[in-house]
Design a binder for these strands. Structure first.
Lengths: 195, 195
DNA sequence: AAATTGAATTGACAAATGTCAACTACTCAT
DNA sequence: ATGAGTAGTTGACATTTGTCAATTCAATTT
């Protein structure tokens, strides 16, 4: 829980009262998630929002051919959920599972709603989260329609080195929307250029 | 302004007081934008949020080779801004201009901040906007990394026919991240399939 | 230590998409 | 009415990326 409060302090500035802190501690529940364990499966409704305090997770869909398409990575201090399913209560087409043994703080949709209404700092945090999320999404969309596969990889290398270090290469390829073979070749070429 | 209030009623349910309505009318200013006229240029900071009451606009970047990359279209009832520049006050790398003669309601960043704090309905609206925006962004990212060029076009045809009707084909291609020639061929093939 | 597993690499080839140039059709301004 | 632009189409070819199969490599299990 300490990780989470550090995160809160970083993004809200607003100090919270002891009472508010107690409320938060009540609303969030800690959960260990082992490698390869799911916290959301395709076909279920995403009822919880999860804050990662430890570990590495991913959100992905599986197509007709059984190929996984990763739309999001998450490590410490990241939130995981299928936003569409969570907000709309619709059936999710995504899976979320742990790649490293992880630990998350989960809050139920109803409590999240409640918390945001009753604790001002949480409203600010939500707005901040949405803002950052929107900016990141715009960048990723721009990268997808503008850059080549190699440029997208280099861009990721620069802006999200943590992901590249902690997830295997085939998952990075999936995230970038290219085949593992192509990524392997891109890396080889980039390496040769530096020699 | 009527268009805007219709929109508000549709998304907030909360009726507003006469005083609040007056506040809104004061904060927003109406502006006509002629075809090809800019409301944001690369290098400027995006200080205003614009709600389109009439017309059609687009947001795009221009690369080294002078090629435009469209990241967003907007028509009636859509908001336009470079979210990153608007929220962070950073210099924008995007342009926003009108494709049809348009009319927008503009609000300055400071007033927008103020309005959201003082009018509860606007806070709800903001949250709703962010939510819808996040869902749409996730879908577009998923489409970009999962679908082929043809599938992306068909997806757009199904979910955003209005854009396809109102913007020329080369802009649709830019939005999809493909060359105009490729889109032309995709359309030809799709047409042949239906014969 | 041997065997097993899965990830990463590599090669050969196929498919998708981009580029360039030519041509057509259309609109708009003079 | 004429001419200049602009969008869209088409063909030929280049480049990028995907697919499939084989191989290497490292980690893990037995």
């Amino acid at each position: 829980m300490e990780t989470f409060f550090n995160y809160l302090r970083r993004y809200t500035e607003h100090p919270m009262s002891a009472q508010e802190i107690a409320l938060l501690q009540q609303a969030f529940s800690r959960r260990k998630v082992r490698k390869r364990q799911y916290i959301l499966q395709e076909g279920d409704v995403c009822r919880h929002l999860s804050f990662i305090t430890k570990g590495a997770m991913r959100q992905y869909s599986v197509d007709d051919k059984g190929i996984e398409h990763i739309v999001q990575f998450g490590i410490e201090d990241w939130w995981m959920s299928d936003r569409e399913s969570f907000e709309l209560g619709s059936v999710s087409t995504y899976n979320i599972d742990a790649w490293e043994d992880s630990e998350v703080l989960q809050i139920h949709y109803d409590d999240w709603w409640e918390i945001r209404n009753s604790i001002p700092a949480m409203r600010i945090l939500t707005a901040e989260m949405d803002k950052r999320h929107a900016v990141a999404a715009q960048k990723r969309i721009h990268a997808a329609i503008t850059l080549t596969a190699e440029e997208r990889y280099l861009d990721m290398l620069r802006h999200q080195p943590a992901f590249i270090q902690r997830f295997p290469q085939n998952m990075i390829a999936s995230y970038l929307g290219i085949s593992p073979e192509t990524l392997s070749r891109i890396r080889k070429q980039a390496y040769l250029k530096n020699e």
